[in-house]
């Protein structure tokens, strides 16, 4: 153990000056707090269910500049994708995560699409991945890294497309996180909470999109889809 480490900890202990008999008590309190994580005040807004919850997610995500489309089943992803790319005049070239939900979309059968699975590289124009959860409270997506789901898919390309099973829309951040606990490999190396496309206010007077991350964010809410694997 380093000299700096022991010096800093010693100074902290001297400053805190807990009496020796309460030392065990303090350690027990810390252990208790970590063993049973307690949520703070959850906004009433987040305590919605069913259709209302999906509507709130959609409204909040749209309010920060994301585009949200509701689809009945994975087979509808292909048409929605092509339509989006056409409307924004984007090249039909996609890098995607190796996820069963995206496999089910049958994108490789589409002759108009150039599609690759794996890690995006500059200048790949479009990244396609799946979210583990949506958070209605602020229209936020919860993405988690895995071998099959490179984090960069949602950050490097100029356009980010994220597929989210409608059943995985939660009210609050805490509920979405609770869904991760207990999965194998928890916590994932990288959990990204994404709320709208990349933005900056550093050059006045306007807010500009696409500062470093995606300029556009399309969320495809798919009804009859199983939740993504950890």
């Amino acid at each position: 153990m380093s000299e700096a480490r022991s010096a800093i900890l010693a100074r902290l202990r001297a400053g805190l000056a807990r009496p020796p008999r309460s030392e065990a008590e303090a350690a027990a309190e810390v252990a208790r707090r970590l063993a049973e994580p307690r949520p703070g005040p959850i906004p009433a807004r987040a305590r919605v269910a069913g259709a209302e919850r999906v509507a709130l997610f959609t409204r909040m995500a749209e309010s920060v500049g994301a585009e949200v489309r509701r689809l009945p089943e994975p087979s509808a992803i292909r048409a929605a994708l092509l339509d989006f790319l056409r409307r924004h005049n984007l090249p039909a070239k996609i890098v995607r995560a190796a996820d069963p939900l995206l496999d089910a979309a049958g994108l490789e059968a589409e002759p108009l699409l150039e599609i690759r699975t794996g890690v995006p590289e500059e200048p790949d124009p479009v990244g396609l991945t799946v979210a583990l959860a949506g958070i209605a409270e602020t229209g936020t997506l919860l993405l988690a890294s895995a071998g099959a789901r490179p984090t960069l898919l949602a950050f490097l390309p100029e356009t980010s497309i994220v597929v989210l099973p409608t059943a995985a829309v939660f009210g609050s951040y805490e509920e979405a996180w609770a869904g991760l606990r207990g999965r194998p490999g928890f916590p994932p190396r990288s959990v990204n909470l994404v709320t709208g496309p990349s933005r900056t206010g550093d050059i006045p007077p306007s807010i500009e999109l696409g500062a470093h991350g995606p300029r556009r964010l399309l969320v495809l809410l798919v009804d009859q889809a199983p939740a993504a694997e950890a």
């Binding site: 909040m60 920060v64 794996g118 890690v119 602020t138 936020t140 890294s145 895995a146 071998g147 490179p150 984090t151 960069l152 490999g185 916590p187 994932p188 190396r189 990288s190 959990v191 990204n192 909470l193 994404v194 709320t195 709208g196 496309p197 990349s198 933005r199 206010g201 991350g213």
Partner: peptide, 24 residues
Amino acid sequence: ATGQEFSGYTTFLTGPARPDERDG
């Protein structure tokens, strides 16, 4: 800070790339 409901990107990172990961 800015009056936003939530910032654009909030990331929780736990350790470097895992053996099966090709980025990070």
